[in-house]
Design a protein around this nucleic acid. Structure first.
Lengths: 210, 210
DNA sequence: CACCGGTACGTACTGTCGGTATGTCGTAAC
DNA sequence: GTTACGACATACCGACAGTACGTACCGGTG
């Protein structure tokens, strides 16, 4: 007798079906966007009917959330280990930025998470979801820099939002550029410059200008 | 033929009807978003039928573009004169940034232009439209700073995109914050810090020569 | 083995909404 | 007065999200 979990064949089938629906959804949402993707088509690609879809998800938005989570979890693997990697915090933060721009180039991430996420889920719901994913990682990176004294103690939440917005725009620029390689280089240069400007300077200059 | 343009009463009515439709669209798109706004409702608020709507606009997206343009033109008035105002370029640029954040706080601008614009119109079409509006203004401001030597000669297009993205995020943060006054102060502080970091420093930096 | 409860779907239908085709009325030109 | 046309209204179609209900099949119980 099996002492461990007795995963019934039934549940296995069910899980497979659900995964097929999610995969189909990610693909179609990425290609055609939320509005121009029909649930019948999603179901058809997964070789089931709408009945199965509505059994597994609450509706179109529910399916979208599942697709969102799917894309994010896949992304988090790569991103997390880079940021949490060993070495000087400044270096790994920079590496994290570059990695995140890379991630943003993924069509699925860009469309589902960055562009349509806030619109479909509503900004507040999207923010909550992001808390446990990319945004959370980025913020903890910024937090590390502030703690380790690399950044002036700006409000972490706000600064991270600004960075997040800038990086998303950056990725979109690269993705839609006719010459992505050059665009990518330019973007990296600009971002490095911005972040370098934020770095705490040894010379004290409290509210210097004017 | 008449030398003076005789604006017929007919055309006047027509223009009024069109304007009523645009106003109705701006209101409903702002409140419920693009997807959850029905054309019948838009027409009803304008006290006409869908026939009139389709006479004036190519469809739902056409109506959205008109609403987009309406919001942008209203905004441009305030924004343009600030940026093009007299005085030192750095000061007026900073003033422009603050003004733009203010603009972004307008619910209509935030929802129609910032959030749903890229999704509904598609990013490329949105970018083209923005060229003649806020983004264009922001970029010319950045260009001025580079020309006047206040900013290192970073690629203007990219840098402006980054700024644009950061500012939009900033505005969203303020708008959804439970304490908008504090959020606004924090945001201003962060932005000032970022921009200040970008400012060309008179003393040559060890890493950044020239 | 027979029976049964529930899960995992499939099928058929409804309501809403974007879009179209067509009709109508008033104004302006001749 | 007739004609032409612009500015709408009305009626309808097709697509699609969501619902109601039926069904097959698995797993447990006696």
């Amino acid at each position: 007798m099996n002492v461990v979990t007795v995963r019934s064949r039934r549940l296995e089938y069910s899980e497979t079906t659900r995964q097929a629906l999610v995969n189909s959804a990610v693909e179609l949402f990425t290609r055609y966007g939320y509005a121009d993707t029909s649930l019948d088509e999603v179901a058809k690609r997964a070789r089931v009917t709408k009945g199965a879809l509505y059994h597994h998800f609450s509706g179109k938005r529910g399916l979208f959330e599942a697709a969102f989570a799917e894309v994010e979890t896949k992304v988090m693997g790569r991103l997390g280990e880079i940021v949490r990697g060993p070495g000087d915090p400044w270096e790994s933060a920079i590496a994290g930025l570059r990695a995140y721009v890379e991630v943003c180039l993924e069509p699925a991430y860009q469309r589902i998470v960055v562009h349509e996420g806030p619109v479909v889920l509503g900004w507040e719901r999207w923010r909550q979801a992001e808390e446990g994913f990319s945004f959370g990682v980025l913020r903890s990176a910024v937090e590390n820099l502030v703690v380790s004294g690399e950044l002036d103690d700006l409000p972490v939440e706000i600064t991270t939002r600004l960075l997040f917005g800038a990086l998303s725009s950056a990725a979109t620029v690269i993705a839609t550029s006719p010459d992505p390689r050059k665009a990518s280089a330019d973007v990296t240069r600009s971002i490095d410059r911005v972040v370098e400007g934020l770095r705490r300077r040894p010379t004290p200059d409290p509210t210097d200008n004017r």
